[in-house]
């Protein structure tokens, strides 16, 4: 091995322990370039979202061009380059949910919290997201609220559930 190839990128200057954990995850994949997506999954799990600094850290360790890392991170909908809200509401927009009124659910939350689909409320409390299909079509329309799957939703049940989780003010007046 040449000296050049053996050169190991430096640890992250912040000293944040999560970078250490990410290095361990990369090592598990032997720093293979084709493990980029696995590594991005690990990074997002650790950090919640993928900051540019983090992407650069990954590029250096996998010896990949930064544009490639950025291109992959922005191709897949799972990865987000922006911090998410404290709470997330994912409305399934699969066909079964569509046929059973997922659009109305999405519109209700969007209107009530003044937030576009895919965005986070200005107070950083709620991210409203959509999923292609959760594969929970038997209980359509389905919503995932903070990781919990809830079936057979309508605008009233969903909004009252949200009300219970969010501080006053995130949801506008009824």
């Amino acid at each position: 091995m040449t000296a050049e190839a053996a050169k190991k990128p430096p640890a992250h200057p912040s000293g944040d322990k999560r970078f250490k954990l990410l290095e361990v995850a990369m090592k598990r994949h032997q720093f293979r370039q084709d493990a980029l997506i696995e590594v991005l999954h690990a990074a997002q799990e650790l950090f919640g979202y993928l900051e540019l600094d983090l992407l650069l850290f990954i590029a250096r360790h996998l010896k990949l061009p930064p544009s490639r890392v950025y291109g992959v991170a922005t191709f897949y909908h799972f990865f987000t380059l922006k911090p998410q809200g404290k709470h997330t509401c994912v409305v399934c927009t699969g066909t079964a949910c569509f046929v059973k009124g997922a659009d109305a659910l999405l519109a209700a939350v969007s209107k009530q919290a003044s937030v576009a689909s895919g965005a986070t409320t200005t107070d950083g409390e709620l991210s409203l997201l959509t999923a292609r299909c959760l594969g929970a079509c038997g209980i359509a329309p389905a919503v995932v609220l903070d990781g919990k799957v809830m079936g057979h939703q309508d605008a009233a049940t969903l909004l009252s559930e949200l009300k219970g989780r969010l501080p006053d003010g995130t949801l506008g007046p009824a």
């Binding site: 084709d34 493990a35 997506i37 999954h41 897949y76």
Partner: peptide
């Protein structure tokens, strides 16, 4: 290999590109 939310990866050549860590 865990997908990351891209329907097109059901297409076999796209799926392989994804397994190899690419777009």
């Amino acid at each position: 290999r865990i997908g990351a939310g891209a329907f097109v990866c059901g297409e076999e050549t796209a799926l392989m590109a994804s397994i190899m860590g690419g777009r």
